[in-house]
Amino acid sequence: MSEALVEEQAQAAETEDAERKIIGFFCRECAYAAADATGNARISLPPTIRSVLVPCTGRVSPLHLLKALADGADGVYLAGCLVGQCHYREGNLHAIDRVEFARALLQSVGVEPERVQMFTMSAADSPKFVAAARKMHETISNLPPLKRK
């Protein structure tokens, strides 16, 4: 997956109209399968969630997370495999550390670190996927809109 494609999809997801926007980067091996199962079961997700498919959460860099926030998203989250069950062995561990780094960066400039979060789940665990989406939606709804320069 090329750098441009990931950014393009994130941008396309951002430009659709909604009051609050939350970008979810979903791992193809687990979270996206869980999202599929959620759709099949006809469970609705919060309208603020925009999904971006990535091959592994390890593909997402701090730049993707902060660029999404700078370009219009109010929150960003990653949904990846359970620790120890990454399809690429350690991709989700890298993602966890990058999320932590992005949160530290946000905190250092006075932005709420809760705007960036990471969730892990198995491919069969669609209830956990829905819970993650709703929790993210709730967190962002309780925060003021992100101001940009």
């Binding site: 700078a70 780094f101 530290a104 932005v111 940009r148």
Partner: peptide, 25 residues
């Protein structure tokens, strides 16, 4: 530079100093 540009857009104040970096970054 790209990361800095994104951070500058949403920053509320100047960075408060060096931050701890997690092991895999």
């Amino acid at each position: 530079g790209a990361l800095g540009e994104a951070l500058r857009k949403i920053a509320r104040h100047q960075p408060s100093g060096p931050i701890e970096v997690p092991g895999r970054v």
